[in-house]
Design a protein around this nucleic acid. Structure first.
Lengths: 187, 187
DNA sequence: TTGACAAACTAATGATATTAGTTTATAAAC
DNA sequence: GTTTATAAACTAATATCATTAGTTTGTCAA
């Protein structure tokens, strides 16, 4: 019964993310279940996170980091519509792979969450560049980005909520939606 | 200290909806706060709802009913793009007016929730009709509906989550998104 | 070897949903 | 009008939750 000392915030958050993704929702991870998975007692978690809310903040950052890794990789070397479609696919893949923590990445970070804020800004910059390569600038580009994010978040959320019940290929629906929007934007 | 007997399930759910919408989230309504608002003790609520989950089911149906009232009214007598734009505006207005219960209306109802299922189907039928008046039928229409719902849910959710931080008119973003999509669909 | 501290622990608190068992107001039947 | 059945309130109690306070102990650096 040793008092292990190897536990780091990162390990705690990683484990929490694993539990959340297995269950498909953050609500499934309580301090009790998380502590059990880490083989410690619930109060000991407070050595690594300040509160349940702080754990969620940590999960959001953890998710945002991974999301951006995937999006950067997906868009590497691509421009215009090709870049946007590849990024959109990667976004959707991320939501499917990490259904538990994805919703946390959506909430706007507080100003003091500097890394999360930076990642959010990077995402906007990345999309702005793609819109520019489609010929959109200034306010047009901002409106276009808002629309794209609405599409990505909306489609993947409804998918996850099992709201599309008709047996018709969802990949196809996704690409049609994106292409229709991009056609409409650029015509 | 009378044992009042006027309390009905509808009243309980109405009060719960009011609390949820005031706070902007269902998570704000516990059986304790709800009981307090109704001036009864928490266990007494079990005379009207089977559980917290059942209360949420009730709230979802309550919301879905109102949403459909608004959408029917908004689209009355309109066809094609005009009908879709009016319906979309009404949808967005509903989300703004009822931020607490809107998210519950998104989850797909279980088959035994007959009225909720019927309302869901009515929504699909309504949108199918509009798509038909745009010239879309069959699978094309289904894909188009999925896209539209993704847009409506995605845009309003991101708005509510305060994810659009740049000071640029959100009405404008919404209409540009819809029009771009509809342009892309019908070209 | 020692001493400081991070990280674990136990114990306790207040909020939560929920169940069991009890009382009582009210509406219908007599 | 009195009786009675029951819906709807109640009290009491339980298990689980996040959280705080105070205590112990392993480990690393001096």
């Amino acid at each position: 019964m040793p008092k292990r000392r190897w536990l780091k915030r990162d390990v705690v958050i990683e484990q929490a993310a694993a539990l959340a993704n297995e269950a498909g929702s953050v609500t499934a991870v309580s301090l009790a279940t998380l502590a059990q998975a880490l083989q410690i007692r619930p109060p000991s978690l407070y050595n690594h996170v300040a509160s349940l809310e702080d754990l969620h903040r940590g999960l959001a950052l953890f998710g945002l980091r991974q999301l951006m890794v995937e999006l950067r990789q997906a868009s590497l070397g691509l421009v215009g519509r090709e870049a946007i479609l590849a990024t959109a696919s990667a976004y959707r893949r991320f939501v499917h792979a990490q259904p538990g923590i994805y919703p946390l990445t959506v909430r706007a970070p507080e100003p003091e969450e500097t890394e999360a804020t930076a990642l959010s800004q990077e995402l906007v910059q990345m999309l702005l560049l793609m819109m520019a390569s489609l010929g959109l600038q200034g306010d047009d580009a901002i409106h276009a980005i808002r629309g794209l994010r609405a599409i990505l978040h909306g489609f993947t959320s409804l998918e996850t909520a099992a709201a599309y019940k008709i047996p018709l290929d969802q990949d196809e629906s996704f690409y049609r939606l994106l292409n229709a929007y991009l056609d409409g934007l650029t015509q």
